[in-house]
């Protein structure tokens, strides 16, 4: 309907933005390391990471459990402090960026507050950031429409399905219009069918809003389908083994996943994952 029409036209905008701003860097890490002090001794979560994320990119971080992909996202979000190296977010330190509300973060679980309706969950960040009532209502309307949840404002989270809850949590991250969206395996707990659906909706949303997205996953098809850039990581210590620039077009119907081009990228990701493992086991 008109949603898909809007998405098609917005796609052009997205493409334009991505090419136009390929020079700007949103996240820049140099020699970044993080060592956790645990009871079993120090654990190298991240070791010597060099990475740039450009404006408008959709970057996936993929790797086995314990490779530090979530930790890296948390460092960007200033939820963890690196022990060595530098990282900048929008040219600021992560802490400054967090205090400027430069990013929206979507967690593995929806994490909606059960005592708040969907409406009040989505407007929670706006309340904290001191938006006016009228502004909150306007943004609520806009973001719920973006994630196709219009009409569920008065429901409580526990009255919705898992997929709808996760969409509401994405709406919550979008509500304050940060240019950077950090997503930590947001669809990991959902079944394959819902996941496919949300993946295509996410692409559509990315095209419409021209945000920069950092997306953690351990699904190869998901990473290849969504990303303009795939960062392959390996564990103990967590490091980057490969950075793959996707050659897929911006417009990606779900059946693009059966094209040879798609399979070739997926193959390269799988090789990268295997290489990361080979001198480990």
């Amino acid at each position: 309907m008109n949603v898909s029409a809007a998405a098609a036209s917005a796609n052009d905008v997205g493409r334009g933005a991505a090419t136009m701003s390929s020079g700007q860097t949103v996240v820049s890490a140099r020699g970044l390391s993080l060592v956790f002090d645990t009871n079993d001794g120090p654990v190298n979560a991240l070791a010597d990471i060099d990475l740039d994320v450009g404006k408008g990119e959709f970057v996936s971080f993929i790797g086995p459990s314990g490779c530090g992909k979530t930790t890296f996202l948390r460092v960007i979000a200033d939820l963890e402090k690196p022990t060595a190296g530098t990282i900048s977010v929008n040219g600021m330190t992560p802490q400054q960026a967090r205090e400027k509300r430069a990013y929206g973060y979507v967690f593995q679980a929806a994490g909606l507050f059960p005592w708040r309706t969907i409406e009040r969950n989505v407007t929670l960040p706006l309340e904290i950031m001191g938006y006016s009532r009228a502004e909150r209502a306007e943004r609520l309307h806009r973001t719920l429409e973006l994630v196709n949840l219009t009409g569920f404002e008065k429901k409580f989270p526990w009255q919705l399905s898992g997929g709808m809850q996760q969409r509401a949590s994405i709406a919550r991250a979008l509500a304050f219009d940060a240019d950077l969206l950090l997503m930590d395996e947001p669809f990991g707990a959902l079944d394959e069918i819902v996941r496919d659906h949300l993946n295509s909706q996410l692409l559509e949303l990315w095209a419409r809003t021209t945000k920069t997205i950092c997306f953690v996953t351990h699904s190869i098809p998901e990473a290849v389908y969504l990303s303009t850039k795939i960062v392959v990581m390996s564990p103990r210590p967590g490091r980057v083994t490969d950075v793959i620039q996707s050659t897929l077009p911006k417009e990606r119907p779900l059946d693009i996943r059966e094209t040879p081009e798609f399979l070739e990228i997926a193959h390269r990701v799988r090789d990268g994952l295997r290489a990361g493992h080979s001198y480990e086991d």
């Binding site: 979000a77 200033d78 939820l79 967090r98 205090e99 400027k100 509300r101 990013y103 929206g104 973060y105 967690f107 593995q108 679980a109 994490g111 507050f113 929670l124 960040p125 309340e127 904290i128 950031m129 304050f176």
Partner: peptide
């Protein structure tokens, strides 16, 4: 997770106390 969420909003102590 919920507390991390409030942190990403740069929510202060009292906001986190009353809202979460």
């Amino acid at each position: 997770m919920e507390r991390d969420l409030m942190r990403t909003y740069a929510s202060n102590y009292w906001q986190t106390l009353f809202k979460l």
